[in-house]
Simulated scan of single mutants.
Amino acid sequence: MAHPKRRQSKSRKNKRRSHLKIKSPLLIKCPLTKQKHLYHHAYWYNKKLYYRGKILYNKE
């Protein structure tokens, strides 16, 4: 099994971990209903399922 020859410094460890962070979800505003929703996802509003500015399903 491989073992490091020397201990890595704190700054080197922190540089490696700088990319490991939680990103906020990408939200977009629908031009039809003016509601915020996840990008590339359908969403419910007033018993209707919307996706890309169109009604996919009407639940009534």
Rank of each mutant, 00 (worst) to 15 (best):
K54N: 10
Y39I: 13
K54D: 07
Y51P: 02
Q35F: 03
K48H: 03
R17V: 08
M1L: 11
L38A: 07
H19T: 11
N14T: 10
Y39G: 11
K21L: 02
L56G: 01
K29I: 11
Y45D: 02
K36C: 12
L49F: 05
T33N: 00
H19R: 13
T33C: 05
Q35L: 09
Y45P: 02
E60P: 03
A42L: 00
K5D: 09
L49Q: 03
Y45V: 01
H3F: 12
H40M: 15
R52T: 09
Y45T: 01
A42P: 00
P25A: 04
Y43T: 03
H41Y: 10
K23T: 10
N46Q: 14
R12D: 13
G53Q: 01
Q8K: 15
K23N: 09
H3Y: 11
L27A: 04
K13M: 13
R52N: 14
K48M: 04
P4I: 02
N58V: 07
R6D: 08
L20S: 12
N58A: 08
K21R: 11
H37A: 06
A2K: 12
K5H: 12
K47C: 06
H3K: 14
L56V: 00
L32D: 10
A42T: 03
K48S: 00
P31V: 00
Q35T: 07
L38E: 07
N46C: 14
K59N: 13
Y57W: 11
Y57S: 10
R6M: 10
P31D: 07
P25M: 06
H40C: 02
T33R: 01
I28L: 06
P4Q: 10
K15L: 10
N58Y: 06
H41Q: 12
K54C: 07
L49Y: 03
K47W: 03
A42W: 00
K36H: 14
K47I: 02
K5M: 10
L49R: 04
Y43V: 02
W44E: 12
W44D: 13
R12E: 15
K10P: 05
